[in-house]
Computed example of a mutant assay.
Amino acid sequence: MTMPAPFTDQDQFNTEQHQVIALAAVFQAAQLVHAIATAGSQRIGELGQHYATVLLQASLNIRVGQNPNSNSLVFFKSLSDLHLGLHTLEQSLVMPYDPQPKQRYPRLKTKNPKQALGYAMALLQLSAKVYAHKDYQAKIEQTQQKIIRQFAFFDYDYQNSSIIAALAQAYSDTASHLKPRIMVKGSSQAFKNTHEVALIRALLFAGLQAAHYWRELGGSPWKLIFSKGKILKHIRYFAELQHQQQQLEVESESL
Rank of each mutant, 00 (worst) to 15 (best):
P6N: 12
T174C: 10
S188W: 12
S254N: 13
H212C: 01
I235Y: 01
L124A: 06
T2P: 15
S220R: 10
M183S: 11
L89N: 03
D157A: 10
L73H: 06
T88F: 00
E141P: 02
K102E: 12
L241T: 06
I231L: 01
A211V: 04
A30D: 02
D157P: 05
A29Y: 06
L47I: 06
N71C: 03
H34M: 08
N112Y: 08
L117V: 05
N193A: 09
F27A: 02
Q150L: 13
Q159M: 14
H133N: 15
E251S: 13
Y158Q: 00
A116V: 00
A165G: 04
G65C: 07
D135K: 15
A152H: 05
A132N: 15
I225T: 12
S127I: 00
Q142A: 14
Y171D: 03
F13L: 12
V26E: 03
N69H: 09
G218E: 04
S92R: 03
G40I: 10
Y136L: 12
I44S: 03
K102H: 11
A175W: 00
I147L: 03
V250A: 13
E240C: 11
A211L: 05
P68Q: 10
P106F: 03
V54A: 00
A39D: 09
A122C: 15
I182L: 09
V130M: 07
F153E: 11
E196Y: 12
A35L: 10
A35C: 07
F75P: 01
S176T: 07
S187C: 09
S254V: 13
K77Q: 13
A165D: 09
G186S: 01
Q100F: 10
Y158N: 05
F191M: 10
D135E: 15
F75C: 00
N193Q: 14
V250H: 14
V250Q: 14
E141D: 14
F76N: 02
A175T: 08
I36Y: 11
G207H: 04
A25G: 04
L204E: 08
P106R: 14
L217R: 01
L126G: 06
S161M: 08
M1E: 14
H234N: 09
D173R: 09
Q31A: 12
Q144N: 08
L199H: 04
I235L: 11
L241Y: 07
A30R: 03
S72E: 01
A35N: 11
A24S: 11
L232T: 06
A24D: 00
P101D: 08
L208F: 07
Q246V: 09
M121F: 13
L89I: 02
L178C: 09
H243S: 11
Q209F: 00
E46N: 11
L73S: 02
D81S: 15
K129I: 13
K111M: 08
Q66S: 12
P101Y: 05
G219N: 06
Y158C: 03
K223D: 00
V130E: 01
R215Q: 12
